[in-house]
């Protein structure tokens, strides 16, 4: 919540919308902040979607372990997606 205010940006380098710079310039403060929020969004989505599917299956099949598998799967997939989007380029 109480992050430091953004520093002046150098204004170089393009962003690709995930808030990450393409390496042609310096990282801007705004880009870093945007990347952080984008990553947060992906992690939440993974947990909600696969955790939710797991919970639904648990409810349907009267079991108790699929939600946990779903959550782990979702967390893992999200991290992989974040790696694809933000690290591998």
């Amino acid at each position: 919540m109480a992050k430091k205010p953004p520093a002046a940006n150098t204004g170089r380098g393009r962003t690709d919308g995930n808030g990450i710079n393409d390496g042609s310039g310096r990282f801007g403060a705004g880009n870093e902040e945007g990347a952080a929020w984008s990553i947060f969004g992906y992690l939440i989505s993974g947990l909600i979607i696969w955790g939710g599917i797991g919970l639904g299956l648990d409810h349907w099949l009267h079991t108790h372990f699929i939600a946990l598998i779903g959550l782990l799967l979702g967390a893992g997939s999200s991290l992989y997606l974040v790696w694809l989007r933000f690290v591998r380029r």
């Binding site: 989505s45 696969w50 599917i53 992989y80």
Partner: peptide, 8 residues
Amino acid sequence: LLTPIEIA
């Protein structure tokens, strides 16, 4: 695995 996460 990934497409539902992206869409969500």
